[in-house]
Design a protein around this nucleic acid. Structure first.
Lengths: 341, 341
DNA sequence: ATGAAAGCGCTAACAT
DNA sequence: ATGTTAGCGCTTTCAT
């Protein structure tokens, strides 16, 4: 490997000067600087960031922990983070917690050894505890919040997004609206449920526990919960589903039950995706600015690392995209359609 | 930060002994070792991997460059790599080339400073050149090959996968089979085209250039190419599409043209996905062992890093999954159906 | 404006 | 079996 010493020798200066020439140009005479730059170029010099980090205790490295890299939503978040980091010359160490607090802990332990300068994390239920592994590290929580009182977070406005989605359904005339909701120890799930309740209240509809089924954010859970919900004697005419994966499950459940969208059932999902766009019928969804979410979180973190104060927590807006999976409920329903299996 | 020195002090040994106790246990008396371990635990000691790497010139770090992290195929590859690396205590630095040789080059430059011990790369067209940035680094090419004569690669058997797909179509009785093929500077595209030709030949069908349209691996290209292909006077009765993204485009094009699958058109895609599974009709595809691909590549690289010789290049098998988008061609076709727009 | 020297935290000779 | 010493490549005082 080409080291600074070789460069210095070729440029006939000391290693110290060579170092300064390359990243403190103002401290060095123009002519010497040019010589050093020339030498570096000639030798193909690449600074050893490990040595630099060790010395400066600043690694130009950020940690990123997402809960499921296979979920396109998270992949998009990650891309936003990476692009923002790269633009400022930072390297991202990405880990995957798979929603498991234990894997998150291990990721943090590994990460710590790399002396990251900041962390962006999509929290699990134990993030509050786990973060004690990296005391003093600037942390931005992404998409959800761990609930730590001094947490800094970049999220979408889940309450309003959910409210808008459900208001759309009530506006169409639906009065029995089911919800498949995520785990209540995840902040997004709590907030989306709240939006659902608010929209019902605004429409003068009662909140019925029997219409709200929990799922564990995965397709299979969404499918199971939807099956149950749609097999009730008096099944809902519309469904609001709390995340992208479970929405897939809901659509499949409807299909299994022979329900045609939107004639027999309206569905609104949370989070847009190509899948939602290309399904037939195309899905009405609450779209999130996913890429921006990641990018903003990263820019925000970098700004703090560079010494600026923490800004206020950020809430990006969602947009309801009206496609073809929602329609007014059937004016009349034959008993056959309400049959239980 | 807690350093080895603090641990050593608490355990009343020298830093050197503390270091040995923690990762060369056999060189240290059992009792001292226990004292050191205890001390490390008590203080929450985490080794500074930067310092370690600097000293040992071995960073326990691998580079991974994929061409599109938003493509679920690549996300799955990445997960396979990460899981395999983590299992052996290696950290993965992941980058995204977006199919741009230039971004690939920058990724390699950044990576080099981190002293990676190996690299896994999904090559772009310039990877051969770019790899000169990291001379001597063990490299595994994943999914595709750069064409370098001494490249080591982990791929699927594209020729046979494509051949099987097209043979399936000829077996159903199709005689006009179109193909949407990727860029010919990407090895997978070349190989899949070859499989297509072989299957046609085996069925005694001529290879018609007019039935083979190129696309740039993206949905939009697939859609455009399919539109053209399906608007021909005598349009194909079946389509073989060279990758997952373009298959989406092909399905949308068919939909736009009012063609019903599989009655008016059979489609086989390359690479399975949830989208392919949940589309209606569910898509017949050539499935790849994507996760295994990433995992094998990583295990392979690690084995080489640990001093073993390079194994033979690996070709994992594909599996044709027969779903509902393929059927025998219509026995008769009314002129109306073959109309051009 | 430049150089000499020290040291980031760790590990590997080399001693004992 | 353990301690002493040196040095990985870089940056940063402190001199000059």
């Amino acid at each position: 490997m080409i080291g600074l010493e070789e460069v210095a020798k070729l440029a006939r200066v000391s290693p110290a000067t060579a170092s300064r020439a390359l990243h403190r140009p103002e401290l060095v005479a123009l002519r010497t600087r040019e010589r050093v730059e020339q030498a570096a170029l000639e030798l193909g010099y690449r600074p050893n960031v490990l040595a630099r980090s060790l010395r400066t205790r600043g690694s130009r490295t950020l940690g990123l922990i997402v809960t499921d890299i296979l979920n396109p939503f998270h992949a998009t978040l990650a891309k936003g983070v990476q692009d923002a980091a790269e633009a400022q010359g930072y390297t991202v160490l990405m880990f995957n917690s798979d929603e498991q607090p234990d894997k998150e802990r291990r990721a943090l332990e590994t990460l710590q050894g790399h002396l990251p300068q900041g962390l962006i994390v999509v929290p699990t239920s134990q993030t509050g505890d786990n973060l004690r592994i990296v005391p003093g590290l600037p942390v931005v929580e992404l998409d959800r919040t761990s609930g730590l009182p001094d947490a800094h977070s970049v999220m979408v406005d889940n309450v309003s997004g959910a409210r808008e989605a459900v208001a759309h359904l009530t506006g169409l005339g639906h009065r029995r609206i089911g919800m498949i909701v995520g785990r209540q120890d995840v902040s997004t799930a709590r907030e989306r449920l709240q939006g659902y309740r608010e929209a019902l209240a605004a429409a003068g509809l009662p909140y019925l526990e029997s219409l709200v089924l929990p799922g564990n954010h995965r397709e299979a859970d969404g499918r199971l919960a939807s099956m149950q919900l749609l097999s009730q004697r008096e099944r809902p005419t519309a469904l609001f589903v709390g995340n992208n994966e479970m929405t897939v499950g809901a659509v499949l459940a409807a299909r299994d039950l022979g329900l045609e969208l939107p004639r027999d059932l309206s569905i609104v999902g949370f989070d847009d995706s190509r899948w939602a766009q290309t399904m037939s019928p195309a899905l009405t969804v609450v779209a999130q600015p996913t890429y921006e979410l990641g990018m903003v979180a990263c820019q925000w973190l970098l700004s703090v690392i560079q010494g600026n104060p923490w800004p206020e927590n950020v809430r990006l807006p969602t947009v309801l995209i009206h496609r073809s999976s929602t329609a007014p409920p059937q004016p009349t329903r034959s008993p056959a359609q309400a049959a239980s299996p």
